[in-house]
């Protein structure tokens, strides 16, 4: 083939074959884009869960410490806490995953099956040891005057 002719030749392939080629290329590019987004979603799911755990845990810690403060203030005044109760709800899933919350006197630990975890340290003067799961959403945090401890009950 004459190189001069090759440069000027515009025959290439038929429109149909050209279209099929272009379509394949498009599909390949799209698949690559979507796959890359998929891995991105996986990462962002974990990140989103950690973020949500932090927010959820901090909200919970705020309640525990405020209950702690109320009880401490009352007791230092020689008073009696007849009742202090907080109702709270936790979401059934965070980023489509169920999770568990473990609470002790020193820290709150949230974790899910996909290895997303979060610790929030705090310190309460009264005992609290509870494990709750997201399969039930409505709980009640209350102070028990007889045992000097905080308990969580499912509603």
């Amino acid at each position: 083939m004459n190189p001069k002719n090759f440069l000027k030749n515009e025959d290439a392939v038929s429109i149909t074959v050209g279209f099929i080629l272009i379509l394949f290329i498009t599909i390949l590019v799209f698949s690559a884009t979507i796959l890359s987004f998929y891995t991105l979603t996986l990462h962002s799911q974990q990140a989103a869960m950690r973020e949500s755990f932090d927010i959820l845990g901090s909200g919970f810690v705020a309640r525990v410490t405020s209950m702690d403060t109320l009880v401490n203030i009352t007791r230092s005044n020689g008073g009696t806490v007849n009742q202090v109760e907080y109702d709270f709800s936790i979401p059934a899933t965070i980023a489509n995953e169920g999770y568990g919350i473990n609470i002790t006197k020193e820290r709150i630990f949230l974790d899910a099956e996909n290895d997303a975890k979060a610790w929030i340290p705090f310190n309460s003067s009264y005992n609290i040891t509870e494990q709750i799961y997201s399969n039930a959403q409505d709980y009640r945090l209350s102070y028990d005057n007889n045992t000097n401890s905080m308990i969580i009950e499912q509603q």
Binding site: F37, T41, S44, S52, I55, S58, G59, A62, S66, A95
Partner: peptide, 19 residues
């Protein structure tokens, strides 16, 4: 839809802040 999911998840605010 996928982008929307990502944006939604990273912005899902829980109950935070003091009491």
């Amino acid at each position: 839809v996928m982008l929307n999911n990502i944006i939604f998840e990273s912005n899902m605010a829980g109950e935070a802040g003091g009491d």
